[in-house]
Amino acid sequence: MSPRATYHHGDLRAALIDAADQLIAEGGIETFSLRAAAQRAGVSPAAPAHHFGSVKGLLTQVALLAYARAGDYLDSVHDTPDPAHNVRALSLAFVRFAVENPGHFRLMFRGDLVDRDDPRYREFSHRPGLRLGRAVATYHGHRHIDMNRFEDAAEMLGGIAAMHGLAYLVLEGKALRFFKGAQAESFLTDELPRVLEQIYPALPPPALPVL
Rank of each mutant, 00 (worst) to 15 (best):
P209D: 12
L34F: 11
G71Q: 03
I24F: 02
Y7N: 03
V114E: 08
A167V: 06
D21T: 12
L157A: 14
P128H: 02
A162K: 12
A184C: 00
D11F: 11
M1H: 12
L34N: 15
R96T: 14
Q183E: 15
N148S: 06
L132T: 05
I17P: 07
A137G: 07
Q183V: 06
G53A: 08
A15G: 11
G10L: 02
I145Q: 00
G53R: 10
A20K: 09
A175H: 07
F178Q: 13
A41D: 04
P209G: 09
P206E: 10
H140D: 11
R127K: 15
L58T: 07
R122D: 13
H50D: 10
A46M: 10
A207Q: 13
N86M: 04
L34K: 07
K174R: 15
N101Q: 13
H126K: 14
R131K: 14
R149I: 00
H104Y: 06
L90Q: 13
S91I: 07
G57W: 07
A5M: 06
G141L: 01
D146Y: 00
L211A: 15
G57I: 03
H144I: 06
S125E: 09
G129C: 07
R131C: 01
L192Y: 01
Q183A: 14
A5F: 01
M108L: 12
L74N: 04
L208K: 13
A66F: 06
V77L: 07
D190L: 01
A15S: 08
F178D: 09
V87K: 06
Y139H: 09
V99P: 00
V77P: 09
M156G: 01
A19M: 03
R120V: 03
H9T: 10
L169W: 04
I160G: 01
F124G: 03
K180R: 14
P119S: 05
L64E: 09
L16F: 05
S44D: 12
F32R: 08
Y121W: 15
G53V: 11
A70Q: 15
P81M: 02
Q22A: 15
L64W: 04
V114G: 08
V195W: 03
F179M: 05
V195N: 01
H78G: 06
T189L: 01
S33D: 04
E185G: 01
L166Y: 01
Q198P: 04
A5H: 06
G42Y: 04
D18L: 08
E100K: 11
P201K: 00
L132I: 06
G129A: 07
G133D: 04
V114T: 09
L130H: 13
R143K: 12
A46W: 07
N101D: 09
H164Q: 13
A19E: 02
G159D: 02
H50A: 13
G28F: 03
A5V: 05
P205M: 05
P193W: 00
P81D: 10
Y73W: 08
A182S: 10
P204C: 01
N86P: 07
R131W: 04
A47C: 02
